[in-house]
């Protein structure tokens, strides 16, 4: 097991290993228990979509995975890091996990380029030159190379979310988390963001997505997990979940969203 305090080695080396292991995870806010014992594994390179009604605990589960929410009981293992262990340096864990938010959360006091170079220069101590060069490559990849010096508030929603993805990728994470990444977008901009996510999936990035885009989940997911009332009610391949749902809750949910 790598030393969590100093490790910058990859979370896992073996493609067959479960890079995320969630063991009987419970999370309460005060008296309100949101997650009531979640068990799940995600393999390296796997794309998992989490679906479920609002308030079911989808986003909370995702936020637990990179330590934005503390764990009440149970554990989450990211490779050799246990998030329930108080001695684990969360910043070390977060170097391996990128996150994209529903409302983009770009830094309005910085340019697009500065948004992307902030973490590599601050956390990885890259030189400005190296960080900027890599940032421009990432902007090219998401199709926004001409927006390097723009301010976030001058961008459209779709452009903002693509910058946010580039910003997360700049840390070269092994896992990407997407928290309803297209929910705040106008319909005509959803496609450009999904396109970027699709290309990441094709490159073999390990991803967990909370999404309302059922068609997209069906297309890119290796597995789909249905959460309701704080537990995973059902999971399996997209064909199985969407084509042959077994539980009444999932059938009910699908009948409302499809």
């Amino acid at each position: 097991m790598p030393n969590p305090k100093t490790s910058t080695i990859p979370l896992v080396t073996d493609d067959e290993t479960n890079v995320i292991r969630i063991e009987n995870l419970r999370k309460s806010f005060g008296d309100h228990e949101v997650l009531k014992g979640v068990n799940a594994n995600v393999k390296t390179g796997e794309v998992v979509c989490i679906i479920g009604p609002s308030g079911s605990g989808k986003s909370t589960l995702l936020r637990c995975i990179n330590g934005l929410e503390t764990i009440t009981s149970g554990d989450i293992w990211l490779g050799g890091f246990s998030l329930a262990d108080n001695n684990v340096d969360l910043n070390e864990v977060r170097k391996h996990v990128g996150m994209v938010f529903q409302h983009f959360n770009l830094f309005p006091n910085m340019t697009v380029l500065e948004n992307i170079t902030l973490a590599p220069t601050q956390v990885k101590k890259y030189s400005q030159d190296r960080a900027q060069q890599e940032a421009r490559e990432l902007l090219h990849r998401v199709g926004l190379e001409d927006k390097a010096d723009a301010r976030p508030d001058s961008l459209s929603g779709g452009q903002k979310q693509r910058v946010a993805i580039a910003r997360a990728l700049a840390m070269k994470p092994e896992i990407m988390l997407f928290d309803e990444a297209t929910s705040a977008l106008d319909p005509e901009m959803v496609g450009e963001v999904l396109g970027v996510i699709r290309s990441l999936a094709e490159e073999g990035m390990t991803m967990v997505l909370v999404t309302h885009e059922m068609g997209f989940a069906r297309e890119v997911a290796d597995r789909v997990a249905f959460i309701d009332s704080g537990v995973i009610q059902e999971h399996g391949s997209p064909e199985q979940i969407f084509g042959n749902p077994t539980s009444d809750r999932l059938k009910d949910f699908l009948s409302k969203v499809l």
Binding site: L68, R94, N105, F107, N109, A119, V123
Partner: peptide, 24 residues
Amino acid sequence: GQAEAARSLALTQGQSMRKVVLPQ
């Protein structure tokens, strides 16, 4: 969300305060 974005990029509490929250 600003501090959350900074923290999720592995910035320390101090860095996220200095670089992201305080300027705003």
